[in-house]
Design a protein around this nucleic acid. Structure first.
Length: 211
DNA sequence: AGGCCGATGGCCT
DNA sequence: GGCCATCGGCCTT
């Protein structure tokens, strides 16, 4: 299978997010190669999205978001976790898609060795920090070109998923722009993370009985 | 199944 | 100094 084409991520963050669903991330780790099929992602657009790391301009941390599409943007959060994005849009236009969850395609034994606390296969890459940890992603991977077959981390182009299977909703745990439904996931996957409102975000609506 | 909490450090005001 | 695009453990329903 071929790697994803940079151009497929270059024009729009929402289209890029949906395009990445169903694609496989291949990562070479010290324990061996791990392949994960993406089932949940979130779009972030620096120019006009207050929740995006790049919304307030370029800094040392978010620099790769301003570069060309198809590169890893890896950041450190909560003092202990890494999360990985794939950059979108053209050079100079900041945008990225957060990789939130995936299903392990192979190798299951290697994957369990990397994430020994996972009780079920669905937990191996459920959540952005767990996915990054499973793939062994850290600071040293910031900027890696996932459209280069020679890179240690690659994204393979799966056929686009059936649009009827794509669901969307508000992004998980973000403290801004609660109205944007820029999280996308594949219906029915056990690896999709539960929704959690961000700080000051409205709670999910109560129905008549709940009130 | 869902809520609360502690861990832990970099980034930005 | 406060805020995080989180996780895992432990607690209560």
């Amino acid at each position: 299978m071929r790697v994803l084409d940079r151009e497929e991520l270059a024009t729009d963050v929402l289209a890029a997010a949906v395009r990445l669903l169903g694609c496989t991330v291949e990562a070479d780790t010290p324990e061996g190669r791990v392949d994960v099929r993406l089932v949940e992602v979130e779009a972030y657009r620096g120019s006009d999205d207050p929740a995006s790391h790049s919304f307030r301009g370029r800094t040392a941390r978010n620099g790769v978001m301003f570069g060309p599409a198809g590169h890893l943007y890896v950041y450190f959060v909560y003092g202990m976790h890494f999360c990985a994005n794939i950059t979108c849009l053209r050079d100079g236009e900041p945008g990225a898609v957060l990789l939130r969850a995936g299903e392990v395609v192979s190798d299951l034994a290697t994957a369990h060795a990397r994430r020994p606390t996972a009780r079920r296969p669905a937990d191996l890459a459920r959540g952005p920090a767990r996915l990054a940890s499973l793939l062994g992603l850290g600071r040293e991977h910031n900027g890696v070109d996932v459209t280069d077959p020679a890179s240690p981390v690659r994204v393979l182009a799966a056929p686009p998923v059936d649009p009827a299977l794509v669901r969307s909703g508000p992004r998980v745990g973000v403290a801004a722009a609660h109205d944007l439904t820029w999280r996308f996931w594949l219906d029915g996957s056990p690896a999709v993370s539960p929704y959690r409102p961000g700080r000051n975000a409205p709670r999910p609506e109560l129905d008549a009985r709940g009130a």
